[in-house]
Design a protein around this nucleic acid. Structure first.
Lengths: 330, 330
DNA sequence: GAGCAAACTGGTAACGTTTCCAAAGCTAAC
DNA sequence: GTTAGCTTTGGAAACGTTACCAGTTTGCTC
């Protein structure tokens, strides 16, 4: 920058003003500075800039997700990136893989880089360690899962409602014995979906048969095995509700291999790519990761712009997509 | 940091030494500094650190992809993130959406943040604008597509070979009229796959019938329409080769709706989630985005560690996965 | 043509670190 | 008891930028 100033015969202050498009610099000098920048192909150093800058902004936010390559997380990531780009902000992203220690490490790493804001899909249940960041004024928004022991904005799927409506859809088609597959109960979303399943059955005067329920099932393969176990009950369930994408595909695989995919109904929570091409197609309660990501980004940037109003808790509804598997009658 | 130094009754230099775990600071002082850091819950500022630091490293790399939410790109991104994490490095990622202008903007934005290295899946064909970054010593690795007018490391899929083997698989099953769907010819990978198709046919003494070939097809829906057109030829092709994931699903949709999915063979380039659950399953030439991402990351970090040897050009082979659709005989 | 405000320009001190160099303390050998 | 050499410590400059304040020029009014 000093070189640019020297070449353009101006002060570094003026160069800084030109670069930041501040008003009050004559066109004549601006052109001269521009030419010098071009000639030396000078690259502005945002790192140094943010160090001195009054607001300390470095044009970067941090996004902490469960697993970046998961379609749900990836769509959310993309929505955030897209919104951030309109504000000239770049995104640092990382995966947690349900590891609580990693959550703290990754957020510490982001804090060390002085990100302007954070979007967090937490792995643990206690985010009180974030008090310091919060106190020092770092804006943050939680997505998909709410923070624990900590007050902050969040954007969540309506898990309870979605689960109830999904199970209700099966009941409306005449089912009375509905099996359930769910992820780790320690994951808030999984617990809520499980709760929705139980509530909806109870609301219809149907007792929950725990032999038809498998929680803490991780991944597609174990879901396949669990499904076989559930189906081996006598009398067997006539329908299944799967509380997560991979569990849905696992259940579908089990049904297929048993030749029951046209006999036993299936509804899954969270949409699945290509689910419409299957025979039957898989009926799901679709989440809307793109909307969630956009909502989280909007909220975050509003906070970054100085909004200090009380915490906002945004709930994104699910959408029933009927494709066949959920409309099979007993 | 000054506060920490004051509280521990040492100089800032000593604090810096403790933080960076430099040798030559007595245990007594180290403990005192550690306690002060704890008490004030001081957070190291990597931004300022990298500004002064001799090597200028900020612990951040940039990753530029076509579309972050695409499964292929997301898996690659994840592989890079995973490797980077072992080195304490975070990843800034962005999507280009085939926009050449955006490529330059995004890379400029990353350069302004002084990333330690770059992984690039280029949208344009001329990367000579990167000369300056290269000259200033920023390590960079290209993935999936080679750089144009510019020498650099790259990690590519063996597109020509994969395409030839895919088409060869169809020919081995007795097909002589094989249709082709491809993405924009301006995209290097698409052009190579198209070339592979033609070469393989020619090698088997089969002339290319251009009525069976549709290039520059973008997206699943247009692929579906294009497939119908190809199939309307007389005599109709008995097999199809689709040069990209979305084109494969589009072709499959068309075959399904025409009731031909058990009659006309289909092989796609790039794997598709849940392709095994379809009836018939879709045979593909699978790419290996995770390996590519890891290879790119390894290469990049080797360069960042000071390796100045000549450019490396790594080629990752494809893998044939037979699932039924590609084994249909004419 | 004088006076005054507005517009423009520049010098210098920060921002929070690390690096460099010098000083102080200690040990061991003569 | 002195000196040499090592280890430990600290002071101050520097990294590339922006903020602050002061200085200069310009344009306008009377």
């Amino acid at each position: 920058m000093r070189d640019v100033a020297a070449l353009a015969h101006v002060s570094v202050t003026t160069v800084s003003r030109v670069i930041n498009e501040e008003p009050g610099v004559s066109a004549r000098l601006a052109v001269r500075v521009g030419a010098a920048i071009e000639q030396l192909n000078y690259r502005h150093n945002l790192t140094a800039s943010s160090l001195r800058r009054a607001d300390g902004r470095g044009g970067t936010i941090g996004v902490v997700l469960e697993y970046i390559a998961d379609p749900f997380d990836a769509l959310m990531h993309r929505a955030i990136e897209e919104y951030a780009l309109t504000r000239g902000v770049l995104v640092l992203a990382g995966s947690l893989l349900e590891d609580e220690a990693r959550e703290r490490e990754l957020i510490a790493a982001l804090a060390a880089r002085r990100v302007d804001g954070l979007v967090i899909m937490p792995a643990g249940h206690d985010q009180s360690y974030l008090m310091n960041e919060r106190r020092s004024g770092t804006p943050m928004v939680f997505v998909d899962r709410p923070p624990g022991f900590f007050d902050a904005d969040d954007v969540l799927t309506d898990n309870l409602d979605g689960s109830r409506r999904g199970v209700g859809h099966l009941l409306a088609h005449g089912h009375r014995r509905v099996g359930y597959l769910g992820d780790l109960q320690t994951i808030t979303t999984a617990a809520l979906r499980h709760q929705g399943y139980r509530e909806e059955l109870t609301a219809h005067g149907i007792g929950v048969d725990d032999r038809l329920v498998r929680t803490d099932v991780r991944g597609s393969e174990r879901a396949e095995a669990a499904t076989r176990e559930i189906l081996s009950n006598k009398p067997a369930p006539t329908a299944l509700f799967a509380g997560q994408g991979p569990l849905t595909t696992g259940a579908y695989r089990a049904l297929r291999s048993l030749g029951l995919h046209h006999k036993v109904a299936l509804v899954g929570f969270d949409d699945i790519p290509l689910a419409d091409l299957l025979e039957p197609g898989i009926t799901v309660m679709a989440q809307d990761p793109a909307s969630m990501g956009r909502a989280a980004a909007e909220l975050l940037f509003r906070r970054m712009d100085g909004d200090r109003s009380p915490s906002v808790h945004q709930v994104i509804p699910t959408r029933l997509i009927t494709r066949g598997s959920g409309e099979i009658r007993p």
